Each structure stands twice: as C-alpha cells, then as structure tokens.
Simulated scan of single mutants.
Amino acid sequence: MFCYATFAIIFILITGSSGTLTRLSPNEPKPCCLPKQHSSQMSISTGMILPDGKPYSSYSTYNFSYDSDRGLVALKGEATSIPDGQKSHWWIIENMKDGQTYTIDQDSKKCYKSIITLKPLYCIPETAVYQYSSMYGYGDKQIIGDTWLITKDEAIMYFTVSGDGQCIPLNGHNYSQNPATVNSTTIANFVPKVLDPSAFDIPEECKNTT
C-alpha cells in the first residue's frame, strides 16, 4: 500500500517533455499555468505491477491542496484496494524547498520520508503537444477543456485543463513503465485558494523520521 501511495500523485508531479512541440493549427490553445494556489477533490483509479510482480489496483479520493509560491503540495484521503476492499488512509506532503516528501500512514501513525525526484507541474510545458478540445458540463453551464500530451522519460500523461484562460485542472491519465502503472484522475470541487492550510503542516510523527 505504501508503494501505491507514493505513485498516487505522479500525474500532478510530472514536468517537462522529451518530445518536440507540434502545432496542429494556428487556432490551437497555448500552454498555460495552473492557478498558484488552489484546492480540489481528486478521485484516482490506479493499476500497477508491484516490485514482486503481483498486480495491484485501487480507487482513492483525496482532498488536494496546492501552493506554488510556498512550494507545497498536500493530499489527504482514503484509498480502497481492489478487489478485497481494504481501506487505508494517507496524508502526503511535498515540500519543494527542502526537497522532501512525507508520506503518513494515518492508520498506523507511521511516517515515511523520501527525496523528491519529480518537480511539480506549475505550467503546461512548452514541449507539450496539444491533442484536442472538448466540452464539459451541459446546457448553459459548459466549459471547454484542452487536452495536452506530456512526456517525461518512461512516462506519458494526457492532462486536461480548462480553456477559459484560468487553466483549471480537470483530469489526467498517466502511463508509466517503471514500475508499470496506469493512473486515471478526475478533479472536482475546484476553488482558487487553499481551504486547509494545516494540510501542509508536518505532523509530529514525521519530525524525528530520517
């Protein structure tokens, strides 16, 4: 389960691209930057092959907090493994300034500390390749979503943001080879501010973790 938790946030942490920017038409949207502070609810479906070769899948929901000015990302929520239905509760904090990830198992009160290997995605990179635009919502409550292809080493991601100039993240689909992982993420209840600043506070169980 710990292995899963560390990969649950990969879709939002991928940055850069090893591909070449390809413009499909003069009217296609330009890459944009996400709001500097925001909160949302993430629903994540994950399938992966664990290091021992066994398959693992889960469905999870997280309250997500993001503050690019302070270099902080936090997720707090519940993961349910499939098909046994085992539930676990996780709190993940990324601190870009000290280069650390804190993964807290809230059931056992254990904290795992690791070095950040992927920087957060503040903006759609210039090397991202525009794929298509589609409508979200219905009736007079519709917004355009622009989908981009982002590649990084052995991982690729299709990432959709609103095309209204606000660059609100809507969903992401991530594919990684090492380990073999597929993540599908839907983002809801977006607000352009941090609703729970305490989500960034390092808990006591992490302060003595090496």
Score class of each variant (00 low, 15 high):
129 V>Y: 02
108 S>N: 06
130 Y>K: 05
103 T>I: 13
68 S>N: 06
122 Y>Q: 12
101 T>Q: 11
78 E>V: 13
104 I>E: 12
130 Y>T: 04
134 S>D: 05
66 Y>M: 08
106 Q>L: 01
90 W>N: 13
93 I>D: 08
109 K>S: 11
82 I>R: 13
69 D>W: 03
79 A>T: 15
81 S>A: 12
57 S>L: 05
107 D>R: 07
114 S>W: 09
137 G>N: 00
74 A>T: 06
136 Y>V: 14
85 G>E: 09
125 P>S: 07
123 C>W: 05
52 D>H: 01
58 S>A: 15
108 S>F: 05
128 A>L: 08
86 Q>M: 11
111 C>N: 09
129 V>W: 02
115 I>C: 03
83 P>A: 11
115 I>M: 10
52 D>M: 01
126 E>D: 12
123 C>Y: 08
55 P>L: 06
122 Y>V: 09
91 W>H: 14
134 S>F: 10
110 K>G: 02
78 E>A: 03
75 L>D: 07
113 K>R: 12
86 Q>T: 11
73 V>Y: 09
102 Y>M: 10
97 K>D: 08
77 G>Q: 10
58 S>H: 01
88 S>M: 04
66 Y>E: 11
125 P>V: 00
50 L>R: 04
51 P>E: 00
78 E>F: 01
75 L>G: 05
119 K>D: 10
138 Y>P: 00
125 P>G: 05
135 M>Q: 06
103 T>D: 13
67 D>G: 03
99 G>A: 01
123 C>H: 09
134 S>A: 03
129 V>R: 08
118 L>R: 14
109 K>G: 02
115 I>K: 15
115 I>W: 12
85 G>Y: 07
114 S>L: 08
50 L>F: 03
52 D>K: 00
132 Y>H: 08
56 Y>K: 08
87 K>S: 08
62 Y>E: 14
132 Y>V: 01
88 S>G: 08
90 W>V: 10
112 Y>H: 15
119 K>R: 15
88 S>C: 05
120 P>K: 08
69 D>R: 04
79 A>Q: 15
74 A>C: 09
103 T>C: 08
114 S>E: 15
56 Y>R: 10
74 A>Y: 07
107 D>T: 13
136 Y>D: 09
99 G>T: 07
70 R>G: 00
65 S>P: 04
85 G>T: 07
106 Q>K: 10
124 I>Y: 01
95 N>H: 14
55 P>M: 06
107 D>F: 02
59 Y>N: 15
116 I>Q: 11
84 D>W: 14
116 I>K: 07
137 G>W: 00
97 K>A: 08
89 H>S: 11
131 Q>N: 06
87 K>L: 09
52 D>S: 06
106 Q>N: 02
123 C>G: 10
77 G>D: 12
121 L>M: 15
95 N>D: 15
102 Y>S: 14
78 E>S: 08
122 Y>E: 10
130 Y>A: 02
101 T>K: 07
90 W>Y: 06
57 S>A: 14
81 S>H: 07
79 A>H: 06
97 K>G: 05
124 I>A: 04
113 K>N: 05
127 T>C: 01
94 E>L: 12
75 L>P: 01
